[in-house]
Simulated assay, not measured.
Amino acid sequence: MDPIDYFTEENSADVVIARIKNANDKRLAAVMEVFVRHLHAAVKEIEPTYDEWERAIWFLTATGQICDDKRQEWILLSDVLGVSMLVDAINTRRPEGATENTVLGPFHVEDVPHREMGSSISDDGKGEPLYASGRVVDVDGNPIKGAVIDTWQASHDGFYDNQQPDVQPEHNLRGIYKTGADGRYFYRSIKPCYYGIPKDGPVGKLLLGLNRGNTRPAHLHYIVSAPGFETVTTHIFVNDDPYLTKDAVFGVKQSLIGNFEHHDDVEKAAKLNISNPYWSVEYDFVLTASQQN
Rank of each mutant, 00 (worst) to 15 (best):
I223E: 11
V224D: 01
A226T: 03
F229K: 02
T231D: 09
T231N: 09
T231L: 06
T233F: 00
T234D: 00
F237I: 02
F237T: 02
F237H: 04
N239L: 03
D240R: 13
L244Y: 06
L244C: 10
T245Y: 11
T245A: 14
D247H: 07
A248G: 04
V249D: 10
V249S: 10
F250T: 06
F250Q: 07
F250K: 08
G251P: 04
V252F: 02
V252M: 03
V252A: 02
V252Q: 02
V252T: 05
V252I: 08
K253V: 02
K253L: 12
Q254N: 13
S255E: 13
L256S: 05
I257N: 10
G258L: 06
G258C: 05
N259H: 15
N259S: 14
F260C: 03
F260N: 01
E261N: 14
E261R: 15
H262M: 07
H262A: 06
H262T: 01
D264Q: 13
D265F: 13
D265Y: 12
V266Y: 13
E267A: 15
E267R: 07
K268G: 00
K268A: 14
A269Y: 11
A270M: 07
A270F: 03
K271R: 14
K271H: 11
N273R: 13
I274R: 06
I274T: 02
I274Y: 13
N276A: 10
Y278K: 05
W279S: 04
W279I: 00
S280E: 14
E282W: 01
D284T: 14
V286M: 09
T288F: 07
A289Q: 13
A289W: 08
S290F: 00
Q291N: 14
Q291C: 10
